[in-house]
Design a protein around this nucleic acid. Structure first.
Length: 287
DNA sequence: CGCGTTTGACCAGCGC
DNA sequence: GCGCTGGTCAAACGCG
């Protein structure tokens, strides 16, 4: 995925007027009713009509994006102002030791669309996690949920690190397979990642990280763009992101992650790309 | 040929 | 103790 920063630059350079934010209005250059008096034959009018339709589609998509963004931001504020322990429900079954993490603080965020996150917990000091602590003391668990195309069957969550898949299982409570990954960038890195589609929404990929990376982020181009996602998702030693036992997300990091996920969603949407291509070509023809 | 993925087998934890 | 389940291993396989 291209970084959204670059994509946004492209969009704005095309004067498409894409603004992210609850209060900002989005106006596209091709407004309905514009250029009505332009000269030209039937073909030109048909082209104009087509462009108007595409312009309307773009506006609708922008409206949807804005609504999703506002809803997500609102819910994020709620999450950040609420302790994770307040939100964490009791384990439904309690059968398996890892099950207690499955529902922690993600579903409500997933409902907001675009991208959902975040839950980070330390297993130390939690009553219901004593058994786990016995085996892996101080292992940090974090979850990140990423919206992907429902048709995309790959269980890949790009977070900037290099992962090696070592297993896949069909679990009892979810028909979608769960993939197991180990960090392959550093042989001694203890971090593991489990990726599985949400049982409620198959377009949501839920990645569960266990442990902390003992090496810096790989210096690949996409790694730099994805570093923010890692800061949000994977626990590290970066103290500024962590407050009072749960993770606080920097606004810049969150916006970056959000923008990347939005760009990813948009670039995978054939309707949006087709409409965008038409708008670009129309803009070029207008010059 | 090397590396990553796939997939069936195996192991360990947990509940009954 | 047994069966179920999640997690891991490792041989086979595919791809560049």
């Amino acid at each position: 995925m291209e970084s959204f920063a670059a994509a946004a630059t492209d969009y704005t350079s095309l004067n498409l007027g894409l603004h992210l934010g609850c209060g900002g209005g989005s106006k596209l250059p091709y407004r309905e009713g514009e250029q009505q008096g332009s000269p030209g034959g039937g073909a030109l009018e048909a082209e104009l009509s087509r462009m108007n339709d595409e312009n309307r589609k773009l506006n609708e998509k922008l409206s949807i994006m804005k609504e999703s963004y506002c809803a997500l931001r609102t819910q994020l504020m709620c999450l950040m102002s609420t302790s994770p322990t307040d939100r964490a429900p009791a384990s439904p079954s309690g059968k398996r030791k890892a099950d207690s993490f499955e529902t922690v603080g993600s579903d409500d965020v997933i409902a907001a669309g675009v991208v959902a996150a975040i839950c980070t917990e330390s297993t130390s000091g939690e009553d219901d996690l004593c058994k786990r602590t016995r085996e892996e003391p101080k292992v940090k668990i974090s979850k990140i949920s990423v919206r992907t195309s429902p048709t995309d069957t790959t269980l890949v969550v790009k977070d900037g690190y290099q992962w090696r898949k070592y297993g896949q299982k069909i679990t009892r409570d979810n028909p979608s397979p769960r993939a197991y990954f180990r960090c392959s960038f550093a042989p001694s890195c203890p971090v593991k990642k489990k990726v599985q589609r949400s049982v409620d929404d198959r377009s949501i990929l839920v990645a569960t990280y266990e442990g902390e990376h003992n090496h810096p982020l790989p210096s690949q181009p996409e790694a730099a763009a994805a570093a923010t996602a890692c800061k949000v998702a994977a626990p590290g030693s970066n103290g500024e992101l962590e407050t009072a036992g749960h993770r606080r997300i920097g606004s810049w990091g969150f916006h970056r992650l959000l923008a990347e996920q939005m760009a990813s969603s948009l670039t995978k949407d054939p309707d949006f790309t087709a409409a965008l291509a038409s708008a670009i070509s129309g803009k070029i023809l207008q010059l």
